[in-house]
Amino acid sequence: MELTWHGHSTWHVTVDDTTMLIDPFFDNPKTSLDASDVPAPDYVLLTHGHADHVADVAEFPDATVVGTPELVGWVTDEHGMEDTIGMNLGGTVECGDAYVTMHRADHSNGIATDYEYSAGMPAGYVISDTVPTQETDEESFAFYHAGDTGLMTEMRDVIGTYLEPDAAALPVGDHFTMGPTQAGIATDWLDVDHVFPMHYDTFPPIEVEIDQFEREVRATGSDAEVYVLDGDESFAFERPYAEK
């Protein structure tokens, strides 16, 4: 599995021969790319309807858009994109070589157009290369994109325990989501081996001292590797994966 961070919450994820783009928003200071510079993904995954997460979805007309039924309905109505998968919290869908499980995020939602359009519940995704089951599969790998969220006990009680992500991308910018302290706790609760900060330094309210995030992770006792990527930087996990 290969992960590329394009700033803010925008990630390009490759699982074998399948490519996914999460929350496309290229008007951010961490990326040097425009949406037109990005290779067309097979799937676009949307966590929620705020503009800094759906802004560039229409730039990928040939992709299959995944999101809540309300959100993909808006994509169809607003942009004419009819190749969509509407799913909901707790569900898993097969997307090419990947399995995508939707989980709730603690956040607000809604789309600001000429009227307020409901986008359903905000969400995060666990993307795995095998179907998730209660049986631990040490040959599999799973990546959790938390979306915009605050700290929630489901990270400890459900996502970490049953979905068992190996790596996570967590918002750390504070103000609208978790800050470094809560994101550090989330890292520990998820019991991940690898963690990436996201959703920070895009605009003034979410500017943080990013070194604080690693300090907060260490304060929990977690031994997760913290990777602070540059914009458009990639990180690949190669089989065989490290044991959890």
Rank of each mutant, 00 (worst) to 15 (best):
H199W: 06
I210S: 05
E214D: 10
G184V: 02
V158L: 14
I185K: 08
V217H: 03
T161G: 01
R156P: 00
H175V: 05
T187H: 09
T187D: 08
V158K: 09
L190E: 04
D211M: 03
T202P: 00
V172P: 14
D191G: 07
E164W: 07
H194Q: 07
I185V: 10
V195L: 04
T202L: 04
M178K: 15
F176G: 00
E164P: 00
V195I: 15
G179V: 12
G160K: 07
M198N: 15
D174M: 08
E164F: 08
D191C: 02
P180A: 15
E207R: 11
D166C: 03
Q212K: 10
R215P: 02
A167D: 08
D166W: 08
P171T: 13
Q182V: 00
G160M: 01
P204E: 03
D193Y: 00
R156G: 02
G160C: 09
L190F: 07
M155L: 04
R215A: 14
G173K: 09
E209S: 12
T187Y: 05
T187W: 03
V172D: 08
T187V: 10
D157W: 04
P205N: 13
L163H: 06
T161K: 07
L170D: 09
F203C: 06
A186G: 12
L163P: 10
D157P: 00
A186S: 12
A219P: 01
P180S: 15
D193G: 10
L190A: 09
I159P: 04
D191R: 02
D193V: 00
V195A: 08
D191Y: 04
V158F: 09
P165T: 06
G173C: 15
A169Q: 14
D211R: 03
E209C: 02
P180D: 11
F213N: 07
V158E: 09
Q212E: 12
W189L: 11
E207A: 15
E207K: 13
G184F: 05
F196R: 05
G173A: 08
R218N: 06
M198P: 01
I159K: 05
H199M: 04
V192I: 10
E214N: 08
V192C: 00
D211S: 15
Q182F: 01
I210L: 10
A219W: 01
H199S: 04
P205I: 14
D174R: 04
L170R: 14
V172M: 14
P205A: 11
E164Q: 01
V158R: 09
H194D: 12
M155Y: 15
E216M: 12
D174N: 11
D201H: 04
F203H: 11
F213V: 01
A169K: 07
A183R: 11
T187S: 09
H175R: 10
D201A: 10
